[in-house]
């Protein structure tokens, strides 16, 4: 039934029409392959898989729940880089130079009243160039029974974040801990010294570039490598 007439003609010169596509900046690669194994061959057939990091975006309005009301009451949009609503939690990414102002308003405004702070903690994201060090504050309003997370970032080259001890005195030890573990310098802290590690300790242990350490352990003839030398599937 088929005759050569029905078949599509072969391209004459091997030229395919090129449609110009604008270059899309692609987010950095988070992982290649399905199982994170780099050493032996990944025989699953997913060896070519590329997983990219999710882009950092603001959540569009409406945020849902009390979050809209909260952000409206705060009314400091120019101090906030991004508003992220994820897993039922509201995160305000605040410009570091405005952090104290935002905290003060969150605490004192009668519509906000975040009187209880649950402390400061750090996170180190080496892949986020220009904002490697994050300082995270969790706040709780007992008056309105609400929660919010205030996140600030600083580049590794200039790890300074203003201290919020003046607003929440309980941040004293928390900021010392975050300084100790991540090297974030809280400007204006009354006595920023190490709190967990000895005073003469080198480095900041919870940064991602700080090794965990450990030695291989021999047990019944087999040698188990140190935890950070073991095979990782991440």
């Amino acid at each position: 039934m088929t005759s050569p007439d029905n078949l599509p003609g072969a391209p004459e010169s091997g030229e395919t029409p090129q449609v110009p596509v604008p270059a899309v900046p692609e987010p950095p690669v988070a992982r290649r392959g399905m199982f994170g194994a780099q050493d032996t061959g990944d025989t699953s057939g997913y060896g070519g898989l590329v997983v990219r990091r999710a882009p950092q975006l603001s959540t569009p309005r409406p945020y849902g729940g009390y979050f809209d009301e909260l952000v409206d009451a705060l009314a400091l949009d120019d101090a906030i880089d991004r508003v992220v609503v994820d897993r039922g939690e509201l995160t305000l990414h605040v410009k570091r130079e405005r952090l104290v102002e935002v905290c003060q308003k969150l605490r004192d405004d009668p519509e906000l009243r975040f009187e209880l702070s649950l402390g400061v903690t750090g996170v180190h994201y080496p892949h986020l160039v220009g904002e490697e060090l994050h300082s995270v504050i969790h706040l709780c309003s007992i008056t309105h029974n609400r929660r919010v997370r205030v996140e600030t970032s600083a580049p590794d080259a200039d790890p300074h974040i203003p201290s919020t001890v003046g607003v929440y005195p309980g941040h004293d030890w928390h900021e010392r801990e975050s300084y100790d573990f991540f090297g974030i310098v809280y400007d204006g802290h009354p006595g920023l010294t190490r709190i967990m590690m000895p005073d003469d300790w080198d480095g900041h242990p919870q940064r991602k570039d700080y090794p965990l350490g450990g030695i291989p352990v021999e047990y019944r003839g087999a040698t188990i490598p140190a935890p950070d030398e073991r095979r990782s599937y991440s």
């Binding site: 988070a30 992982r31 994170g36 997983v51 990091r53 649950l118 402390g119 903690t121 996170v123 180190h124 995270v136 969790h138 309980g170 030890w173 928390h174 919870q206 990782s232 599937y233 991440s234």
Partner: peptide, 19 residues
């Protein structure tokens, strides 16, 4: 905090004893 992997990226505890 997770980065999508099989291990925690960061875990911090707000310990009541500490505070």
């Amino acid at each position: 905090v997770s980065d999508g992997g099989t291990r925690p990226y960061r875990v911090h505890f707000r310990e009541p004893s500490f505070c």
